[in-house]
Deep mutational scan, measured.
Amino acid sequence: MSIQHFRVALIPFFAAFCLPVFAHPETLVKVKDAEDQLGARVGYIELDLNSGKILESFRPEERFPMMSTFKVLLCGAVLSRVDAGQEQLGRRIHYSQNDLVEYSPVTEKHLTDGMTVRELCSAAITMSDNTAANLLLTTIGGPKELTAFLHNMGDHVTRLDRWEPELNEAIPNDERDTTMPAAMATTLRKLLTGELLTLASRQQLIDWMEADKVAGPLLRSALPAGWFIADKSGAGERGSRGIIAALGPDGKPSRIVVIYTTGSQATMDERNRQIAEIGASLIKHW
């Protein structure tokens, strides 16, 4: 067993022997301040990774656009098919120029040779490549099948209805392509620590998230040296922004954090800054 596999296998073990965790309302004060600064709703939840206990939450059962955070769930569904012998990570998928959609920095470079399922998941999570996500959605049967996968996990809230990039439209009061912070946090925890996926697939999923290259201005910008984070960000229309993450000190994750916002007129930089400040408060009061 590799060191990384050992780390993920012992996530519940280490967490069980940690000192009790206590909620700190100071972080919620910052979440509410972010709402004021952005002029928009902000949803927040913080779960203990081992027990699933909610440590703090704000608007945990209000719907927010998922945006690209759905790509972690998508690759979880792909990995479940791999575990069941219905898919192979090494299978190569070929596609054409007509398949390319807006923001496809990886797939646009491989029109000639195609990409493997493993490479597509890596591109979808680490670079948020939209064509990679659409190609992977095709392998599982489309958005409705991802929703069905989530329902089978016990998540009857999260739903995907459309493809990239239309799913980022974020129309107010439109339930399409949305989740709730509580539902997303619980589902992410199941994917990373539950028995739904094999140990190898859980490790692969967290490795992809740990290698995320496009979430630097968010929670990662607030992390002290030595902290662990595996995350996936999302951005959408109407001032929408979000991030889902597993993080913790001492090089291992111990909490799940989900943050979503929508309806702001603020710039992307300002949305990023507010999420980073929430992260800084979380870490300060850990």
Rank of each mutant, 00 (worst) to 15 (best):
L100T: 12
K190T: 11
G52V: 04
F149G: 14
W163Y: 13
L49V: 15
A148R: 13
L150H: 12
R59W: 04
L218R: 04
A222I: 06
P181V: 12
M66F: 06
R81S: 00
N134E: 03
R273C: 02
G248M: 06
M184L: 08
G242I: 12
M180T: 00
T178I: 14
C121N: 11
S264E: 10
T158F: 15
A170L: 08
M268C: 15
D129H: 15
E119V: 13
G236D: 12
A245G: 09
L192P: 03
L137F: 14
S254V: 02
F58L: 13
D155W: 13
L247T: 02
T267P: 10
A276C: 09
F58R: 11
G90C: 14
W227T: 03
T27F: 03
N152E: 04
G248T: 08
Q86N: 14
Q274L: 02
N134S: 06
A276P: 05
G194E: 10
K232V: 14
L28M: 04
A34Q: 12
S57V: 10
P25H: 10
G279Q: 11
L218P: 02
E108S: 11
I140G: 14
S57H: 12
R41H: 12
E277K: 13
S96L: 08
S240P: 04
G216K: 00
L137P: 07
A77I: 05
P25W: 08
S96A: 07
P165M: 02
L120A: 03
I140A: 14
P165W: 04
H110P: 14
G234S: 08
R41N: 13
G154W: 05
I278A: 14
A266Q: 15
A148C: 09
T126C: 07
E35Q: 00
K109A: 13
G142N: 12
K32A: 07
A235P: 08
T116E: 12
E46P: 05
T116Q: 14
V78L: 10
R241S: 07
K252Q: 03
H94L: 13
G242L: 07
L282G: 12
W286D: 03
D177S: 04
A132K: 14
G194C: 02
A235Y: 10
T186G: 09
S80Y: 09
W208C: 07
A84S: 11
D48G: 00
G154E: 07
G85H: 02
G242Q: 06
K144N: 08
K32C: 03
I206N: 00
L160E: 13
A40Y: 13
V258Q: 13
T261F: 06
K190Y: 13
E145G: 07
E102S: 12
V42C: 00
A266D: 15
A133P: 03
D83A: 00
D36V: 11
M153V: 14
D269K: 00
K213P: 03
T198N: 09
Q204F: 09
G194W: 10
T262A: 10
I93H: 15
G52C: 02
Q86R: 10
M180P: 01
M268F: 14
F64N: 08
I275T: 11
M153Q: 11
T131A: 13
L160K: 09
R220M: 14
V157I: 06
V29A: 11
I243G: 12
G234E: 05
F228G: 13
I229G: 02
L89I: 03
Y44V: 12
E35R: 02
R159G: 11
A215I: 02
L218A: 01
G263D: 04
T198R: 08
Q37K: 09
R255E: 00
L205N: 08
D33H: 05
R273K: 06
L73I: 10
T179R: 12
K144Y: 07
T178F: 14
G43D: 06
K213V: 02
S240A: 09
V214P: 01
T138H: 05
S221Q: 11
G236N: 15
A225E: 00
C121I: 12
R91M: 11
G251D: 01
A266N: 15
W227A: 01
A132G: 11
P253M: 13
A230L: 10
L223M: 10
T267I: 14
A222E: 15
M127T: 03
M184Q: 10
S96H: 02
I206S: 10
Q88H: 07
E175L: 01
A276N: 13
R241M: 13
D207V: 03
D36S: 09
A222M: 14
K53L: 05
G52H: 00
V117Y: 00
E270A: 14
E164W: 14
H94M: 15
R202H: 14
F149I: 11
Q274R: 05
A222W: 07
L49Q: 01
I259K: 01
A235H: 11
R189Y: 08
N152Q: 03
M184S: 05
G114E: 04
E145A: 09
L135V: 11
I275C: 09
E237H: 09
I229S: 02
T267V: 09
V106Y: 09
A280Q: 07
E166Q: 04
I125L: 14
L223R: 06
D83W: 03
L38E: 12
L188N: 13
T198C: 10
T267R: 11
I283G: 13
R159Y: 02
L150K: 00
D177P: 04
M180Y: 00
L196S: 12
F58P: 13
L223E: 00
H285W: 02
K252C: 02
S281P: 06
W227E: 01
L47S: 03
W227S: 02
P165T: 09
L100G: 14
E210V: 09
E169D: 02
M180V: 00
V257S: 06
A77H: 14
A245L: 10
D83F: 02
G216M: 00
D155F: 03
G234F: 06
R273M: 11
R202E: 11
F149L: 14
L89W: 10
S281D: 00
A40R: 01
W163A: 06
R81V: 01
E46M: 12
A124C: 10
E145P: 04
